[in-house]
Every structure is written in structure tokens, then in C-alpha cells.
Amino acid sequence: MFARFFLMTTQLPGDALVSLNAVNKHYGQLHVLKDINLQVRKGEVVVVIGPSGSGKSTLCRAINRLETIDDGDIAIDGKQLPAEGKELARLRADVGMVFQSFNLFAHKTILENVTLGPIKVKGTAKAEADKEAMALLERVGVGHQAPKLPAQLSGGQQQRVAIARALAMKPKVMLFDEPTSALDPEMINEVLDVMIQLAKEGMTMIVVTHEMGFARKAADRVVFMADGQIVEDATPEEFFTNPQSSRAKDFLSKLLTH
């Protein structure tokens, strides 16, 4: 919404950084992703919302192939997601991922959590990786925690470290899979603030969340999913004030009455 104006002008229409075409996935009998088509342009912030079990987390995880898909294709910056192997690892390095349960490496310090990727995957020199990691940790407000182990930090702090860890790889796009759902209420905002800041700086983001405030504040588009399908794809303004489908109306009414 903010830095987006100049970014939009430099992008050709239809120039998608993340592109999903006719993606289908089944868990046994359950059809979790039904013919998903989604294009995300560079610099865009797309918030995916929907009731639980609607397939939004699966969608997010399919984009860096933590979940396999049955058919259709997914491309990052024009490159098809390859099957397992070195190619896939290389592509994943370009896609940052933030998990609901943080998943910080439990046996590594906060600093090591952030430097491990650059050092081991990109071959960055340790001194340089340390410097960049410290800058990132300062940026998300946990610089002074660098020598501690993950278990010594609060959930909100851990999640901010997880964001720094993903950013250290200088990803083209960031995926957030319900980043605040496992947090105590008073810690949600410290994580959302970091995410809003990222959005302002022009990071391409796909965010699965229940935080409607974040969607209103930072999203360019809201994608509403239900029963494995994308039911609506609209600006936050349109979606929250004038939802088209009865499914979305129902979902929103439930949110507002509580």
C-alpha cells in the first residue's frame, strides 16, 4: 500500500513473482486445494484468510513445497518449483518462511539461528554473516538476546527471530503461516509491527492469518478461502465492506459479533 506505488509502475502487468496455476491437492479422500489460481506481483502483500480447514495453510506450505501438490504448477519468479533435490533447495532459499510454532533451531543460539542459512547455504563468511544477522536482530528488536538459546525467549521474541532468520537469506518473497496464532495476546502486536514494517519496505508477502487488523492495515489484497477454494480475491476495503459470497459474509459476521 505504501511503497507499492512506485513498485507497481516498474512492474509489467501480469508479471507475477509467485504464480499458482490450477493447483490441486488431496489428503486421501479430502480435496484440500481445489483448482487454485493465484498470482502475486513483486512488492504485493496478500493476506489469505478463511475458516480453519479451508486449506490456507496448505496453500502457503505448497508454495515452498513443504507440501507436495497433485497437479497444476507453482512458479517463483518465473521458475517452476522443481521436485526434491538441490534445485528445490536453491529455490527455497529465495522463499522465506515463518511458521506458527516459530521452529527456531533449539540447539543453536539466537545469533546462530540467523547466521546458519547465510553461512551454510550461501557460503557467506562468518564475520559478515554475524554483522548482517546482528543488524537484522536489532531491526526486529531482539539484538540484545543474540547469545541466548531460543527457549529463553518469549514467543513474540522467538517469532521475531524467526522473521530475522528468514530475512537473512534475502528472500524474494516471505510466506507467513499463521505467525501470531501461537502467541499470547500481548505479544501479537510486536510481531505484527515487524510485519507491517516489512510490508512498508516493499517486501512481497503472502500471509495466512486471523488478524483482520493486519489485513486492513497492510494488505494490498485479501484472498478468502473456504473448503479448499479461493472464494474471493479483493482489496481489503472491498472485502471487508462489501463481500460478494455468502461464505465470506458468514465468516465476517462471525468475526464481528465476537
Binding site: 515452498n64 533447495a89 536453491r90 527455497r92 522463499v95 518462511m97 547455504v121 550461501k122 528468514a166
Partner: peptide, 15 residues
């Protein structure tokens, strides 16, 4: 070891 540890490692591009 929780499966999330491996997922996090894979998602930063580790082989």
C-alpha cells in the same frame, strides 16, 4: 526431534 525443525531448515534452503 519435532518435524518443524526439519521444515525450518529446509525452508532456508538446506539440502
Amino acid at each position: 526431534v519435532p518435524v518443524g525443525q526439519a521444515e525450518a531448515a529446509r525452508s532456508i534452503g538446506m539440502k
